[in-house]
Design a protein around this nucleic acid. Sequence first.
DNA 1: GACGAAATGATATAATATAACACTTGAAGA
DNA 2: TCTTCAAGTGTTATATTATATCATTTCGTC
Lengths: 158, 158
Amino acid sequence: MTDLFPEKGHDHGRCIDSALRQAEDVAEANNARFTDMRRRVFTLIWQSHKAITAYELLDSLQAEGVRAQPPTVYRALEFLVGLGLIHRIESLNAYFGCDMPHHEHLGQYFICRNCGRVAEAVNDDMSSAVHAAARAVGFRIEATTIEIKGLCHDCATH
Amino acid sequence: MTDLFPEKGHDHGRCIDSALRQAEDVAEANNARFTDMRRRVFTLIWQSHKAITAYELLDSLQAEGVRAQPPTVYRALEFLVGLGLIHRIESLNAYFGCDMPHHEHLGQYFICRNCGRVAEAVNDDMSSAVHAAARAVGFRIEATTIEIKGLCHDCATH
DNA sequence: GACGAAATGATATAATATAACACTTGAAGA
DNA sequence: TCTTCAAGTGTTATATTATATCATTTCGTC
Ligand SMILES: [Zn+2]
Ligand SMILES: [Zn+2]
Ligand SMILES: [Zn+2]
Ligand SMILES: [Zn+2]
């Protein structure tokens, strides 16, 4: 069994570096400016594998000495979501970093209620079940929200 | 192709009556009090097949002359969600009536962005794809949120 | 360097949700 | 029937999440 969630003692600095590198690539490929503010917000989101709320981000920015207001944060979030660099978790009103921003995908999110971590899956069986169900009732899909709450393997077994 | 959504000219009074009858049954079976306030809120939710927000409900109550405040509405909603008489749509911060409250189910919600209607499906293929994916990664599911946005058959073809 | 579009700053406010405590109601037992 | 107490509701205040609007700054392009 492969756990979607990162290993306990993994080198998270590498996650952050890799995410930043990919984000810069994607931004460049889209002719979009990965400004300082956007980089700050993105980096804060990647401080953990948990989802983080807009106001938690705002607090962190202010703690760093950045004079930011809610619109600043929401604009950065809008930009990052728009490029697919982060995803919004509807059931948490929170955001977390995507680790495969290069290809378009409809992801599914596993959310552990104990450790708070979020993991993204791109599972064809889930996707095709959803699309088949939609086709069967003549529904034209534009967006999907699939959020699965419970206990991750670590939290369920320890 | 069977459309999940109700027919255009259907007799919606029957939807409301049926929902009320079922709600009373479920409440009774659970030894729960279907009070006047709860019935009012429930009935307002069933005024349409759309999802409705807490504050829209509050406005409607006040328009009816009921002196209600936000907690009143949220308490009624909490009760109704708890019994499975209504469902919350996370991506809309809104609520809509369940038409099969008798049996426990993990539903999937189709939401039309044009007409605003919501339809609930209980699709085993979707459910089992989700559960299989969770099993494969050792995740213990406690709740699922599956919300599908797009155009219903009517809106896509007219 | 001048220009204009994009980004950010700043202020205000809207929309969604809950905490806390007082009062009322209604089921259940004495 | 009366008492009691838990459940439900009223009321006020406040927390949390999100956006509208207009002023200013930044940055690539000419
Ligand atoms: Zn990591
Ligand atoms: Zn966990
Ligand atoms: Zn109807
Ligand atoms: Zn429609």
